[in-house]
Design a protein around this nucleic acid. Structure first.
Lengths: 145, 145
DNA sequence: ACATATTTGCAACATAATTGCAATAACATG
DNA sequence: CATGTTATTGCAATTATGTTGCAAATATGT
């Protein structure tokens, strides 16, 4: 689907970023996966073509612009997923639940599942919520049966 | 309150750990704070007396025994807090909400706030929940006013 | 006081992240 | 489509963070 390419180019231009190989490649990889992608994985896949430092900077730029969002797994490793529409440099709207599968270690963005707002003690002002559920994902549950 | 000392000693013995200086010091520091304590902070405070490696191992042992639990903040930095009763080597019961203050960067264990269970898509089996709220804590809200 | 097993500190190593800078590539402009 | 400007990249060096093996020191039961 080469349609993606122009779509990604637009996304970059819209955010004032130049259309470079490294950036397009990151967007392609992330969009081609059904779950969040870890930095180590990206490094492994792109490592021969793109410098590690460049990858750091691309991901940082994307996150700042609201193109992708970062999810830390239980080991503190960064995973990235493309933001659904509605994010920009000023605001991230990624307040959906993330699901970290114990079996296949994929991290799913459950876009449809909003984080239930907890009742915090008075005085505390919640600005942002981050919920990671761990367990067994749908695909792994199927495999076992 | 020197009562703490014997309390901590009991805690160590109960878990088959020897009563050493490093361990007692960690317990004292953690129990003397109203929020979770970051590893870098512990290292800074204890660094002159206790080796960095020892600190890692003490924290790891405590976590395995269910004496403390680890909370990763938004930067992936480890923070530790003493578990409320009911945790042991086999089971952690720390499914309360954590609150990460944007202003003072303290991480509070809101022991009284259980994590609301989200409705995940069918096929997904949730085993554990981890919710970190960020915002402004009670103490910082007061300061501003 | 002594024997034993645990714990610690040290040194070395391994991994991950950051910075400065020069070379390169993107792209607006003429 | 050549060219100047600015953003981007790669490299090397540095810093930070986490891990391992082992010998010395320490806690604790007897």
């Amino acid at each position: 689907m080469d349609n993606n390419i122009t779509r990604f180019e637009e996304l970059l231009v819209k955010n004032g970023l130049k259309r470079t190989g490294a950036r397009l490649q990151v967007l392609e990889i992330l969009s081609g996966r059904d779950s969040a992608t870890s930095q180590p994985y990206l490094e492994q896949v792109m490592g021969k073509v793109v410098d590690r430092v460049t990858l750091y900077r691309v991901l940082q730029a994307f996150e700042e612009k609201g193109i992708i969002h970062k999810v830390l797994d239980s080991h503190g490793t960064a995973n990235y997923a493309i933001c659904s529409d509605g994010c920009d440099a000023h605001q991230h709207h990624d307040e959906h639940v993330h699901f970290d599968c114990d079996n296949c270690h994929k991290i799913y963005c459950l876009e449809s599942v909003k984080i239930p707002v907890p009742k915090v003690p008075s005085g505390f002002k919640v600005q942002h919520l981050n919920l990671i559920a761990t367990g067994i994902c749908s695909a792994c549950t199927d495999k076992v049966n």
